[in-house]
Design a protein around this nucleic acid. Sequence first.
DNA 1: AGAAGGACCAGTGGTCCGTA
DNA 2: AGAAGGACCAGTGGTCCGTA
Lengths: 259, 259
Amino acid sequence: TTANALDALSQEGLSEEPVQHEKEAVGSGGGGTWEVVTAGERRKQQRRKGQRKLLDVYQDDNEGAEDDDINGNGGGGERQREHPFIVTEPGEVARGKKNGLDYLFHLYEQCRDFLIQVQNIAKERGEKCPTKVTNQVFRYAKKAGASYINKPKMRHYVHCYALHCVDEEASNALRRAFKERGENVGAWRQACYKPLVDIAARQGWDIDAIFNAHPRLSIWYVPTKLRQLCHAERNNAAASSSVSGEPHDHMPFYIKHTA
Amino acid sequence: TTANALDALSQEGLSEEPVQHEKEAVGSGGGGTWEVVTAGERRKQQRRKGQRKLLDVYQDDNEGAEDDDINGNGGGGERQREHPFIVTEPGEVARGKKNGLDYLFHLYEQCRDFLIQVQNIAKERGEKCPTKVTNQVFRYAKKAGASYINKPKMRHYVHCYALHCVDEEASNALRRAFKERGENVGAWRQACYKPLVDIAARQGWDIDAIFNAHPRLSIWYVPTKLRQLCHAERNNAAASSSVSGEPHDHMPFYIKHTA
DNA sequence: AGAAGGACCAGTGGTCCGTA
DNA sequence: AGAAGGACCAGTGGTCCGTA
């Protein structure tokens, strides 16, 4: 089980080489590309289906590269899924077949790196450039060998990462509290919503603005449920304040959440 | 055919009422919506399929409203498609069964109005808010009675509208020139690319930045072909300047386009 | 022939639910 | 039971091509 402690940090070194292939073989002849590309329109570019097959996702078809023992499981072909997360304090490395929350947040940073690479390649090629972590980025990450990154997982914990970005103190306090109480990851995850909604309340309920204002957070879609919670609480607050007879009040003496 | 002159402007009056229904019936009980919405998660919200049917697209099902004779064809059920566009000068109204270019550009403004309405409704409901003219907006426009607006048409002429936004003088001059020469709409449309690429060249080839900098243009996706042309020309320019022995030069004495 | 737009399609955002 | 993630699905961006 000592190998597993390392496991949690083994991804740190995973530097997915700065892919920058296929420089589009800059326009050859002196004829000026203007007419060339323009003329291309009528010519029904290569009959829809059998095209260049975009499936490369910005990676030369590095089939069966298997280039690194990413899971750190000694290549035994044993481990199928990532170890489950447990609630850890900041700085704490998970023991046993578990991963800690620093590692979870580290995955978000890795995704950001992958996005930046995808963006650079897109710019180089003059293609449209994603501003968010999209399917394309997940596919790129997978091809780059980061098979432990997947969309459902990352989307599941986005709001936890959001709290970590927006109010690290609060996030750390919550982690310590939930670890102490021996709560499981699901409970901690649930608990991450409320502080975020409270922050939104103080900022005009605009959760999109909160995400966009933070450079590392702005690349993530606002999770549906967080959006709904903010909306519901906004309506709730509005109803409360109008009941008190002072609409658009600052709701000073009204206790809102009862649990 | 005199009715057709009016026809071209008949849409002007089409004010699609500021839809703002269904205020979400603000949270009733004093129990606080917090627990309510949070609890909703486990409960597998209403079994996927038979849900609220999002098909309303922000419109109460105003079936068979038919509320106005939008096409101006006297309700004879004759006209199936919009009249084709012809190249007109600024201010000129198309005659015969034709539509002019002022009308074309007017359609882009209408789409913008529809987008703003969709955005307002989304904000009201706390749903994610589109920043571009999406399928949802086209659907909304159709439901609002603007059946003459459709995606293929709007996407087809986006770059023409872009030139009109970004350099109206150049756009007007081009229209006059092509009208004088008796060119058809397709030829005019093709000709709109070049001035835009030239503008992009002066602004570091960043066509996205050019679109985003203009409030009325920023809501439109950059057309694929315009993006490709900018990219191709950038490479071409880079190749030229490196041939001249001075990479990253300002390419002063080099004639680029030969037609 | 030139042009308008219904309708299709590959790949998206979103997350359920069979799996371990 | 709690949790990870393959895989599905409704609705998207994009535009072809049968239509008039």
